[in-house]
Design a protein around this nucleic acid. Structure first.
Lengths: 120, 120, 120, 120
DNA sequence: GTGGTCTAGACCACC
DNA sequence: GTGGTCTAGACCACA
């Protein structure tokens, strides 16, 4: 999956989200070792400083942790990953509903719209 | 409806979105005159220049236009408003799906999630 | 000829130009009486005050003059009209050339462009 | 080339036009980095905010784009520049013709006038 | 009173 | 150092 970084939001934020998705969707498995900062930076085409910032921010979520000498690893904690997944999904759905309700749609209409979208 | 401006995104962007919603959801009708820049600025609690920027950016969408000395008006082009409404909705749905699909959900699962949300 | 007023430049300026063209191109002949301010304003669809300002500005060019009680008249001075015509044309051509030369065109190329345009 | 700003039209509009000409006539090449907002503002003798407005308006034409932290750049899309050049030229010629035709000149006469001008 | 323009000066996130 | 955002306050032409 390409990194597709744009300039709509800060690059390091996009990197964090990209990595979160990779972890949550299973591209990286629990316990996996992440590539080095330098390799990740090269892959994403960004400055290593930027990747460094993204990774250390990501650490604060608990999804990854760094072992001083041997590198960075995905958490072993499977339930944490599931919790993050659920939390991300909940936020997405709630925002989706709120914004459509502001436009004047009811719950039923929203479901209808979603169904139509899948049929396309 | 309060303005509820936060600092997640630039204020003028939030103002644009707020006004778009107001127009699309019918708070302002086609042809309506908007309050003056100064009044809107006071209402939203921002500097008149900030409101001015928001409004002149909004103008580029065609939803409003300004008559130099008499004020700003909502377009009377009803179909344009509907088109914008549809376009906004489409974007929302598409982004919603894309982000959930990135997390590994299928179309059916997404519909299920949406239904569950409405039942809460 | 419709008035076609837009909001790109001040309305009274557009009115002045419109009237100048009418005089120079012979819609109004030397010595003709102009319609009343009120009638002109109605025809153009503008506020009489605006038409008034346009006319009094136009007077300063000498193309029209007002006879206190009987109304406004086009000048009798045929040569003045021709002079204005020539002056307007000269300005147009000069500006046209300057702007195209700034874009890197030579005189010959400009002539060529003009010829091509007439053939369309 | 000096900036020669006058007060006939808004300063930021004159700046936009100035930069467009610079890009289209090749003073700035595709992909070039523009001077910083502050430097350009100093060079033109205007407030940085004014230059900022001009540049961000110019951005909407696609001729330049900004990289948040590294600066502003001319588009590398060579064909876009050519298209803009053509479009600018077309507009100029059309306006030139329309205004002279309103004054009662025919196409042939206009060509004649243009030729005479070049011979001076 | 209306929109529009401009200046001056500050602060911010990002790289 | 870069672009971007925001405030405060002033002035202008127009109708």
């Amino acid at each position: 999956m390409p990194w597709n970084l744009n300039s709509d939001s800060p690059i390091f934020v996009q990197i964090i989200e990209h990595l979160q998705v990779d972890i949550i969707s299973g591209v990286y498995k629990p316990g996996d070792k992440l590539p080095s900062v330098r390799d990740l930076a090269a892959e994403a085409g960004v400055n290593p400083n930027t990747m460094q910032k993204a990774l250390s921010d990501l650490e604060s979520t608990g999804l990854v942790h760094s072992e001083r000498t041997s590198g960075r690893f995905i958490t072993d904690d499977d339930t944490l990953i599931k919790k993050m997944r659920k939390s991300l999904v909940d936020v997405q759905i709630e925002e989706f509903f709120k914004s459509l309700e502001k436009l004047g749609f009811t719950g039923k209409e929203i479901i209808q719209l979603v169904k139509e979208y899948t049929e396309k």
